[in-house]
Design a protein around this nucleic acid. Sequence first.
DNA 1: GTCATACTGGACTAAGATAGTCCCATATGC
DNA 2: GCATATGGGACTATCTTAGTCCAGTATGAC
Lengths: 168, 168
Amino acid sequence: MLRISRLTDYGTMILVHLAARPDECCPASDVAAHTRLALPTVQKLLKLLARGDLVRSVRGAEGGYTLARPASGISAADILGVLEGPLGLTECSTESHQCELEAGCQVSSAWQKLDRAIRRALDDISLADLAEPPREFPVLNLSGRSLQARPATPAPPPRNRNRTGARP
Amino acid sequence: MLRISRLTDYGTMILVHLAARPDECCPASDVAAHTRLALPTVQKLLKLLARGDLVRSVRGAEGGYTLARPASGISAADILGVLEGPLGLTECSTESHQCELEAGCQVSSAWQKLDRAIRRALDDISLADLAEPPREFPVLNLSGRSLQARPATPAPPPRNRNRTGARP
DNA sequence: GTCATACTGGACTAAGATAGTCCCATATGC
DNA sequence: GCATATGGGACTATCTTAGTCCAGTATGAC
């Protein structure tokens, strides 16, 4: 639940890759090779990221992509905003049409409280944080879940992958 | 992005309805009438909520549903947990299979930081908070979005509703 | 000028998730 | 026994997501 999409996850990996090479202009093929994601998917995501002004593109031979600004200046909220659209826990928080239930609905203001808490957390994490190697994080693993890397997301394009059994 | 499903939203409305009537045993038809949600949908959700131990059911004539415990003892995390499955921002945070990228992936620990922040926020909000009328909330509407109720979710079952243009 | 390399924009498909409905079985009070 | 309820599933249409592909355009090298 409250899960980010797989593409957003991939997109973050791509940004992390670029963040590690601030002075290089990386072509999509390069990024795909290093992240082990499928090339068409990487191309698609880089296009989106460029349109969202998170990366800058250079066309033509010797072209490629670079971060549009330093990793510390890109927040998780920026990334999710570009790859998943505007934040909003419920439909009424992002859409503007009038609610037929207005009188009866008492829920939205509390959802918005939650909404703000999440937004704050997203603003607080920068791409630089995301790119930081795990070992430098003083991780308090309170949840009991193991702190491993992302699952078999990439490489042999995981067809028919069972997305969850948990997904919202 | 990071949106809760519509059914979860409905489920919350149902819980709020029950929270307002702690001593009544409300049949699904009753809940549907008051929330203006479609009866089959309400039935489905109440079943789920009962299985998740958030509501208690009484079968037979004069039967219906009540909250399983006081509204203050039910958190938003409980609700989302029952209606959307286990919390987890990325697949690797809820699933246990090994990640092929382990060496290369540096992202997960930061996502987990975010994950914890969200979890904390969800734990902090109780059904009692959600049920509280908006006016009692000292809402700091920093976002500029109007604080209206949920949109035309219910009633004339909104077929072909354009879910977003924003949805993750 | 031509060619290879890359990005740009968009269309398209398959698979999966979501929302919503319906049916039959079972329990209970009158 | 009957009306009223919940319980457990199955089922369908629709939307979203992931993933691929193609034709167009820009740029540097030769």
